[in-house]
Nucleic acid binder design. Structure first.
Lengths: 196, 196
DNA sequence: TTCGTTGTCTAGCGCTGCTAGGATTCCTTC
DNA sequence: GAAGGAATCCTAGCAGCGCTAGACAACGAA
């Protein structure tokens, strides 16, 4: 059955090629440039091939988004590992989240603006999604203090999300970026910060 | 020159009709249902008429967005007028902002997701835009305490924006909505709240 | 070598935003 | 009241979109 194995391997490679190409195209020229025709041309196959891998275009975007969640989870975990104590972990996570949004706007869009029907916070959510949320919410919940950690984490996440999206559409003054982050961290830590 | 005046008046009315119809269609069936053909059909004119009023479809969305900013500004001012003191005004504004986003998702989308090229925070920004931002940022800046009011207002706004968008895409637990808002207000007020 | 399956492509459907050019309507002038 | 001119509007169509049916070719099995 080696032939069949080779075929499956090639199919999987092409699957990844589609996702990677879609992401590259989106990061280079924005998602509006990612059409099925251009994507097909780039991978050097005809359009229908895309549909033998994905149900529709949204599914391709969702696949890119999923990759984005993996990347984000890895980056968040990396900065937490280096952090010394909960407060430092919290600031590092907030900082890394904003940096991710600013550095990979297309990926961020796929994750939070385009693929809105990804199952979030459900038991059957894809693993990368859960991991990313856990990597973000964990360090945040650590500094929740007396508050209920879940709503607290959601709120901080929303604040970070708002900063990313508003900043990217040019609605926040770029020169205030650092101050905004510092303010957020300071206020969110609240009494917690005084304990350290 | 009464004839010309009548024509100009009719043109202005049709201009408003286009904006109103686009908004109604978007609020009823979402922005993806707002196509130039359907819009033309609804106003009982042919497609090219739209283009004698607006440069392109984005301009129509932008016009709806502008109307949204007027509505938001009015609502924010209304709740501030009723509020007793800066703290109450702050909470009222935050509450009204979230209520607006939840009640008029299509309008909110036009304002913050679709019409991303509206000139924000510039001297030549449209009046409704400035007014809405002022109505929001004013009461927020009041409770900035020792902080720089501008970055503080931007940050709180970003938090509210994040709450609106994440909640609407089903990424925040609906039953935590009140807790999230309460937490935001409490933390953002910080020391300021203790003064009252 | 033939057959049947599997994989891929060509061609096309209905839709989108947008526009050129013709037709019609309306006001002005004689 | 009739004719000329200008403003207004519509029909028809372009290129591109997501997506798919059906023809075709490549390839392993018998």
């Amino acid at each position: 059955m080696s032939i069949q194995e080779r075929r499956e391997r090639e199919r999987a490679e092409r699957h990844q090629l589609i996702i990677r190409t879609a992401r590259e195209l989106a990061e280079a020229e924005g998602w509006e440039a990612v059409t099925t025709r251009r994507l097909a041309e780039r991978i050097e196959y005809s359009q229908p091939v895309l549909y033998s891998h994905f149900a529709n275009k949204d599914a391709i975007v969702a696949a890119v988004a999923l990759e984005g969640f993996s990347v984000l989870a890895a980056e968040l975990r990396a900065v937490v590992r280096k952090a010394d104590g909960p407060v430092e972990a919290f600031t590092a996570v907030a900082d890394a989240y904003l940096a991710f949004g600013a550095a990979s706007p297309a990926l961020y869009d796929a994750m939070f603006t385009l693929a809105t029907d990804l199952p979030f916070g459900l038991p059957d959510s894809p693993a990368p999604l859960k991991q990313a949320f856990a990597a973000l919410a964990g360090p945040i919940a650590e500094v929740a203090g007396a508050e209920d950690p879940e709503p607290f984490a959601e709120m901080v996440w929303a604040a970070l999300h708002g900063l990313v999206t508003l900043a990217r559409s040019g609605r926040l003054r770029p020169d205030y970026a650092q101050q905004r982050l510092a303010l957020l961290v300071e206020r969110m830590l609240g009494d917690e910060a005084r304990a350290y």
